[in-house]
Structure formats: structure tokens, C-alpha cells
Design a binder for these strands. Structure first.
Lengths: 206, 206
DNA sequence: GCCGAAAATATACCAAAGTATAATATTTCT
DNA sequence: AGAAATATTATACTTTGGTATATTTTCGGC
């Protein structure tokens, strides 16, 4: 495997949990099983790329309901549904809401493994993107208000002279803030700064 | 409606075609119906945002097969499937391959209309993005080889002096090419050029 | 080989950007 | 209020970027 990863299995049927535990352990993937969404939430998530195998139909909160609430709970884990009794609309809607797969029992073991690997890969990519975005965001937050203003106008293509006029400060102040912004953003060149701020959506951050 | 648009309906059942024709005409959407994918291909597509309503099961090429071949045929139209006899896997796979909806008869008229409007909106967005990308690409193609080289290095953050050294030309030549590149790309400032070329993937274009 | 067009280069100049030092103003904390 | 920290501004200088004009070079076609 390329690095550590975890598969969370939520199914009320203990025989299913045991079977999936065996299957995944046999290919060397770390597995955590739960008999309900509540139990999963109580345990929490590990800090590693992962994938959630979710039973559609369960006592208490159904897998479908849980899937819908995941975003609100801040859980971005890719989901692979498994079910004994599903209908077309349910499967279609699940995929439309972003699920990786919707498998009906009995399903082929390899099909499930492929879906899980796919999900783990997607989660790995997502985590990388989030980490990068967070780093840029943290750097941006380290700029003073004045430095952010200058940086924003610099990236818009204004000259130092124009920025000084817009902000009603001296051109020297603009140069100081600009240099400071470059240092804090860890941008060696102006194109670097443009690319970094491009990941920020400066309109939304003012 | 926000601008012109077309809905293509492909279904071998003439009563379905007539019903959809009525339904869509009643809300003021232009409709073209076909009894097979072949007939649709023979007619060709209009130059307007659109959506394809596709029967899953047809004599000759099935809707599912056609959907898979659309990318290869250069058809990016959003697809809404309708079917009388489908199974979960078929619906799930269709959505996974990018279909907007997978509806089983009998379906609610409003559900279909919503899906179609959704598809048209997506196609409109896609067409806009493609048009913008094409414009940038055309501008880039208007640069001479030397101008492209200079522009690429400029965007990487190199100084004119460094670019001259890398390309083994004089710094004055770099300045001329650089100015010419800015003019041809219609970039008023360096940040503009960075953003424009960012849409190009310069690695792939050499 | 000669010619015309396009590209490259040289020269000269000005505006803009980057940097360092120091002085002044402002804010913040005690 | 007073002191320390921070921000702003001024001055001076260097490097870089942008532009215009003129000259030279290069290259394809006749």
C-alpha cells in the first residue's frame, strides 16, 4: 500500500462486519468496524486517508441519512454503499450525492476492493489539496490588514504608485508592505504571488 | 428561458417521443426527437446549450452504449436517461459516467423537467468555459515560438536578464518578445499574463 | 548571388521596483 | 503619562522593466 490508510465499516449485521474485516485485513488494509453510525461518530476518525463502507439499511440512522448529514458534520470521507435491498432511485441518488459505489449483495469481493481503493485514492488527493489550501490560507492570515490590501492590489496589476493613491499612503509604505507580503507568503516572484493568491478567492476574504 | 436551448430526445417508442415533445413544448423549450442514435447523429447538433434525453433500451445501439461512446464522438451533451426496465447497477453506472439523471417510468413530469433544466445549465456553463479556453488558446497560438518561450519563462518568474541567458539571446530581444507577447495575449499587466497562461497548461504545449 | 521581410541587436532614455538607513508618527501596554 | 513596539515616511541608491529609434543579421524566395 502507498502509505497508511483506514477503512471504516458501518453495518448492523455482525456477520457482514466479520466478513469485511477478514477481506480487508487479507489485503493489508487497516479496518475499523461499527454496528451503527452513532458508534462510528463516538470513535471518531483517524488522521489518515480513508474510506467509509456504509450499509444502506440499519436500525437507527440509515446509511442514506448519514451520508446526507456527513457534510454538515465535517466528514468528507468517500462512501461505498452496500445493501441487500435497494432500489434504482436510491442508488442513483447516492451516486449523485457523491458516493463512490452502490453495491447490492451479493457483490464481488474484488469490486468492493476496487471501489475502496478508489475512495482512498480520492481521499488522499482531497487531503493533499486541503493541506495545501490551508497552508496558503495560514500564510495569508499572517499578513497585516495593510499588507493584505497592498497584496490584493498588486495581484490586480496596479503599480505601486497607483496603490499608494488608492490607499492614500506614501509609495514607500506600499513598497514596505509589498516586500513584507512577499516574504510572509513565501513568494519569490510576482507570478508566484499571483498563483498563491489565486487559490484564495480574495473577494471572499476581503 | 435564459436564451435559446435545445433538448434532443432519442427513444424508439413514438408515443414517448410525442409525450415528451408535448411536455417540453408546453414550457417553451425547443425539442428535436429521434427514433435512434443513428438518426440523431445524422441530424447533428445545433450550436446552442442543450440536453439529451436518452432511452436506455432501444433496438440497434442502446442508450447506455451510446452514452459510453459520446466522448469519443466529441459530444459533451448532458444526458438524462429514461427507462422502463432498468436495474440498480445500470443506473448507478450511468450516473458514475456523468449522466444527470436516471429516471424509471413512470416518472414525474416535473422531475424530468428539473433534470433537463439542470443539464442545460451545466451545458451552458461548459460551453462558456470552453469558449474562454479556446480564446486564450488562440491568442497563445498567435505567438511566435520565441515569444512563447519568453512568455513561459516570464510567467515562471525569471528576470529578463536570466531569460536572455537561458535562451542565449540578448536582453533587448527578450524585451521585444516579451512586449509582443503581452500585446498578442491582450494582457495589460504581468498578473494578467500569469492568469491567462494558467488556463493553458504550458507543460503540455511545450 | 540578390532582395525584401522579419528577427535580432545596439543605443539611449525614462519609469518602476527593490533595498537600506534613518527619522518620524502611531499604537499599545504598563 | 511614559516607554516600547510598530507603522509610516523620507532620502538615497541600484536594479529591472518598458519604449523608441536605428542598425545589423538572418532567412526564404527569385
Amino acid at each position: 500500500m502507498t502509505g497508511p490508510c483506514v477503512v471504516y465499516v458501518i453495518d448492523d449485521d455482525s456477520s457482514v462486519r466479520a466478513a469485511l474485516d477478514d477481506l480487508l485485513a487479507s489485503v493489508g488494509i487497516r479496518v475499523l468496524t461499527f454496528d451503527s453510525t452513532t458508534a462510528f461518530l463516538a470513535h471518531g476518525m483517524e488522521d489518515a486517508p480513508g474510506c467509509l463502507v456504509l450499509d444502506v439499511r440499519m436500525p437507527g440512522q440509515s446509511g442514506i441519512d448519514f451520508h446526507r448529514r456527513m457534510a454538515g458534520l465535517g466528514i468528507a470521507l468517500p462512501v461505498v454503499f452496500i445493501t441487500g435491498h435497494g432500489d434504482i432511485t436510491m442508488g442513483v441518488d447516492a451516486i449523485k450525492h457523491g458516493a463512490i459505489e452502490f453495491l447490492t449483495k451479493p457483490f464481488n469481493d474484488q469490486t468492493l476492493l476496487d471501489a475502496i481503493q478508489n475512495g482512498i485514492g480520492k481521499d488522499r488527493d482531497r487531503r493533499r489539496a486541503v493541506a495545501e489550501s490551508e497552508m496558503v490560507r495560514a500564510r495569508w492570515a499572517s499578513l497585516s490588514a495593510g499588507e493584505q490590501e497592498v497584496a490584493r492590489l498588486v495581484v490586480q496589476g496596479l503599480l505601486n504608485k497607483q496603490i499608494a493613491s488608492v490607499l492614500d499612503v506614501s509609495e514607500i509604505t506600499v513598497k514596505v508592505r509589498r516586500a513584507q507580503a512577499m516574504r510572509k507568503m513565501d513568494a519569490r516572484t510576482l507570478p508566484d504571488l499571483v498563483r498563491l493568491t489565486g487559490k484564495l478567492d480574495l473577494d471572499g476574504l476581503s
